[in-house]
């Protein structure tokens, strides 16, 4: 019970911080909308519909990357992380709380972005929404861990995309498949499998990333 209380407190701290400073979410929203406009000019006439469905996933991955790059910046600047490591009973609670707040940012950005995408490029189907929801879980789980890793390195913002992109290729495949294939169920299954496997690995290994 106390574990969940820790997780809740940590996630609430991030959301409150964002509510005060408004650093991350507006940037993510603006980025995803401007990338849609870029997509319109990238796609030749006649290829819009199907190709845009694929590009939606490019937008989601890079928007998530934008948010993740700032995930641990507050902790790093104020060197809060050491304090958190000392104060938290179970270190994986830090990962859990941070992943929840990242998930919330991502979901909020997509609540705006998906209807706009529908407006620009045609209807967004229910299966796309399901795939996006499942992919968000995986992105938040893996992304939070990698952001923690990148924050510990000297290269920081430079390193995160390099670590993140190869790892989310299965998510992109599952997402695009669920969006465009005739039978989306196996792709949704892949997304769920990814979430389960990498969620467990990330949850189990985060303690080693922040502790000595």
């Amino acid at each position: 019970m106390s574990y969940l209380a820790d997780v809740g407190a940590l996630a609430r701290k991030d959301l409150l911080l964002e509510l005060r400073s408004r650093d991350t979410l507006p940037a993510m929203l603006l980025f995803v909308l401007s990338s849609f406009v870029v997509f319109h000019f990238v796609l030749p006439t006649g290829t819009d519909r199907l190709a845009a469905q694929g590009l939606l996933w490019v937008a989601i991955v890079f928007t998530a990357l934008l948010g993740l790059a700032r995930a641990f910046s507050a902790e790093r600047e104020q060197s809060v992380l050491d304090g958190l490591v000392l104060a938290t009973r179970d270190l994986s609670a830090i990962w859990f709380g941070k992943a929840l707040s990242i998930l919330a940012f991502l979901a909020l950005a997509e609540v705006v972005a998906l209807p706009v995408f529908g407006l620009f490029f045609g209807r967004v189907e229910l299966r796309t929404v399901a795939a996006v929801a499942l992919a968000d879980l995986g992105i938040a789980a893996v992304g939070t861990l990698l952001a923690g890793m990148a924050a510990a390195s000297r290269a920081r913002e430079l390193l995160l995309p390099l670590l993140f992109l190869p790892l989310v290729i299965p998510l992109v495949i599952g997402g695009v498949g669920a969006t465009v294939a005739d039978h989306p169920s196996s792709y949704l299954g892949l997304l769920a499998l990814y979430d389960a496997v990498f969620g467990l690995v990330a949850w189990g290994s985060f303690a080693y990333v922040v502790a000595e």
Partner: peptide, 10 residues
């Protein structure tokens, strides 16, 4: 294994 599965599906 996850990538292998994904690439086969792709």
């Amino acid at each position: 294994p996850v990538s292998f599965l994904a690439i086969r599906l792709a």
